[in-house]
Amino acid sequence: MEYDNIELSDDEEEITAQTVLRTLQNAWQNERLAPEILPHQNEMVECMLGQIQHMERNINKLPKTDLRASIHKMELNRIKFIICNYLKTRLDKIEKYCISILNDEKQRLESGTNYLTPSEYKYAQEYLINMESHLKEAALDHVPGNMQSFDLNKLVIYPNLQAHVFLKANETVTGIILEDLGGDQDEEIDLEENSQHILQYKPIADLLKSGKVQLM
């Protein structure tokens, strides 16, 4: 049961299943720990799901008592846990920050830097429509006409980008500006490779998206 390297549909670059797994695991960890939704890793997820299917077909050919079968099954279950948890974490964020994510995403779609996969985007839109009609049916339709006006903008929940997060620097990054609220002089810090810090999410959000730092 040896695999060939997997070729991504997007580019010519060949990557191994091992790299895909590592990328997914990091994406999962970051998604769990970041306050906002991060750019999707759909190619990686699809790629790994394909790999899992392929493996499962092979496992089924093995006799049930074969030791290899139980080892492979265990590994696949571990990977499925990561993928499920990763996708569920994203859906939780989509539901919670639905309106703000949709607003941001509309702008990002124009510039082609979308964070959501097409199906996540569809889910977000439908979630919003359902929420709106639910609120109308459950309450607004039963109150006097002059009180039925409904302003979605009042329901917007934003992720707290000022939240403090723990991170590890994957490479050295210099000149991160930390806003100093009390005084008027901002502080500048450097993140050395492999150093660990606790700081606000906002100044490092872009570094996280470019893979220079990792949340922990």
């Binding site: 707290n160 000022q162 939240a163 403090h164 997060v165 723990f166 930390l178 609220l181 502080e187 810090i189 150093s195 660990q196 810090h197 606790i198 700081l199 606000q200 922990m216």
Partner: peptide
Amino acid sequence: GSYGRLDHLTMMEINSVKPLLPQAMDELH
């Protein structure tokens, strides 16, 4: 403080002060 450096702390140790430390810092902020 709104910033701290914590080299050599392991993930389990860091996790054990969540959510207390980051949330306290959020409140302070």
